[in-house]
Amino acid sequence: MSADLETWLAGERRRRWALVTDDDGTIDAFDDLSRRSEPHVDAAGRPFLPRWNPHSAFTPTSSPEYYALPDDLATEWQAYGTRWSMFMNRNPRVWLAWLLGQISETHESASWPFSWSLSIRDWVLSGYETERPFHDRDGVDCPEMREHLTRLAQIGWVVWDEADYRFEWIDAGNEQASPES
């Protein structure tokens, strides 16, 4: 296993670990699966920067053939996708970060709403009475999304700390702690 992959995996943990509240070993399983997949990806000459989110274009879940994975590893990546869904259900902060990423993708094809995630929160807390702070070209703004955002905004919000290059959780009502403030 390469030092590059180990550095990448450590970075994924550092960037996202503050959002995990119920760790059941999913992230360790992700790291193990990534390490076992790397030799196949290297042999195929493909870049390999897997993300925790199995729906990322950089994670083999959606296109194991691109990464030249044998069938057994492709099957494990598919199972990881299912496990990830259960992990998100147990980790509302991770779920919120995923939703905000989807909003950012629909607005500006970016993985995160850098410097404007609090604008989304303010829109949610207004009861959706203010103007939606994003263009919804992919149709993610639906009753189910709003229900999740409303529920999650009651407990806190996820922001990106540019100085530390990682996600941060701020409890509801604690905007002064936000690196975006």
Rank of each mutant, 00 (worst) to 15 (best):
P54Y: 08
H55E: 13
H55R: 15
A57K: 15
A57F: 04
F58I: 08
T59E: 05
P60T: 05
T61Q: 11
S63T: 14
S63I: 14
Y66F: 14
Y66E: 07
Y66N: 06
A68C: 05
L69T: 08
P70C: 10
P70K: 14
P70E: 06
D71Q: 14
D72N: 10
D72Q: 06
D72A: 01
D72G: 07
L73Q: 00
T75H: 07
W77K: 02
G81R: 04
G81P: 06
R83P: 02
R83C: 00
R83N: 08
W84V: 02
W84M: 05
S85F: 11
S85C: 13
S85Q: 15
M86R: 15
M86G: 12
F87I: 06
M88Q: 14
M88P: 06
N89G: 14
R90F: 01
R90S: 01
R90Q: 05
P92F: 06
P92Y: 09
R93S: 01
V94R: 05
L96P: 08
L96R: 03
W98K: 14
G101R: 05
G101I: 00
S104H: 13
S104Y: 04
E105I: 11
E105N: 11
E105C: 14
E105L: 08
E105W: 15
W112D: 00
P113T: 04
P113D: 04
P113F: 00
F114Q: 11
W116Y: 15
S119W: 13
I120V: 03
I120W: 01
W123E: 03
V124Y: 03
L125P: 05
Y128N: 00
E129P: 04
E129A: 13
T130R: 10
T130A: 10
E131A: 13
F134K: 13
F134D: 04
D136Y: 05
